[in-house]
């Protein structure tokens, strides 16, 4: 899965610079700054009310009253809105459609408003409907669409103008597992086309699968930004090594005597969990452990450092375990 991820080219595309936003004297975003590079799939995580949607609405121009600057390709978005509209696609979390429209009619209106020429628009509608797998619903009235179909339509309208930047606000909300899988695959294929994707979600496994960069937002503050592996690696300090032996009941002895080993637990008769001290030199300690295993001629089948899941990392950050 990780091999399919698009690797960004380190060229800054979107820059949030010291963004703050308040509603009725309540600070929703508190001086956040970060950069998204061209080709990035940026996952924006945070609990409800953290400020994810506000950040996104500032980027797409729905909120214009804020402190700080947002740049796209080095240009302040408040000065170049018309240019931004051409390269941006936005999938809102909860936008409704007028119920009397059919799927095709809705797409036609949005396409025309985006400035697409009629001939090109007809082709584009067909292409988009095929891409989001809504061909059969082409002539259906919007009022008759399921939640999953509406999400796909929201994604479809965002793709009409061939955006370079796709902003998705909670694209998986309200989807059943099958639709979620489909939408996730659509996003993956869009990222492989080179589209820069900025999406928010609270479903961490989805973010982990798709993103090459993650931002964790809590109470209006961006508390961490990095790639998923980087975030997980931070927890390797003081982490656990799992050793599986091939002979039941024959784990290696005396490993707890190695410096920087805090304690040893048995997971099963042939499985040992070695807890390292928080400040342990990982490389050095692993070397000592392996040497001891070799010296004792223990028959080892597997040796691995247990990584925390992204969910654990996220919860640690949100709960304030890491400052």
């Amino acid at each position: 899965m990780a091999q399919q991820k698009k690797v960004s080219n380190n060229e800054a595309l979107i820059t949030f610079q010291n963004i703050s936003k308040s509603y009725n004297n309540s600070l929703v975003l508190n001086n956040i700054s970060f950069t998204i590079n061209k080709g990035d799939v940026f996952g924006y995580i945070g609990p409800n009310g953290a400020g994810k949607t506000t950040t996104i609405k500032i980027l797409v121009g729905l909120i214009r009253d804020y402190i700080g600057k947002v740049y796209i390709e080095g240009k302040d978005i408040s000065n170049v809105r018309q240019e931004i509209y051409k390269i941006l696609g936005y999938h809102p979390q909860e936008a409704g459609f007028q119920n009397w429209r059919t799927v095709e009619h809705a797409l036609r209106t949005f396409g025309r408003l985006s400035g697409l020429k009629p001939d090109h628009l007809e082709l584009k509608i067909t292409e988009v409907l095929k891409f989001v797998n809504l061909e059969e619903a082409r002539n259906k009235k919007i009022i008759h669409l399921s939640g999953g179909m509406l999400q796909k339509l929201r994604l479809g309208q965002a793709l009409l103008n061939d955006p370079q930047i796709l902003v998705l606000d909670e694209p998986f909300t309200g989807l059943d597992p099958s639709s979620r899988y489909q939408v996730k695959n659509l996003i993956k294929s869009l990222s492989l086309r080179g589209i820069t994707i900025f999406f928010s979600s609270h479903i961490l496994s989805d973010i982990q699968d798709i993103s090459n960069k993650i931002g964790i937002l809590n109470k209006g503050r961006l508390i961490k930004i990095g790639d998923p592996n980087e975030l997980q690696s931070e927890f390797l300090i003081g982490n656990i090594i799992e050793i599986v032996y091939n002979e039941v009941g024959n784990p290696c002895q005396n490993l707890e005597q190695i410096d920087e080993v805090e304690k040893i637990e048995l997971g099963a008769p042939n499985i040992q969990f070695i807890h390292l001290e928080a400040n342990a030199d990982l490389d050095n300690t692993i070397q000592k452990i392996l040497r001891s295993i070799a010296d004792q001629k223990c028959k080892m089948r597997n040796f691995q450092i247990l990584k925390p899941s992204l969910e654990e990392v996220y919860l640690k950050y949100i709960e304030g375990d890491i400052k």
């Binding site: 121009g61 509209y85 936005y90 409704g96 459609f97 408003l113």
Partner: peptide, 16 residues
């Protein structure tokens, strides 16, 4: 009602 259902969001992200 359209304001409440965020219907205009999809218009306002376009040159309208």
């Amino acid at each position: 009602s359209e304001k409440m259902r965020h219907v205009y969001d999809l218009y306002l992200i376009r040159p309208v």
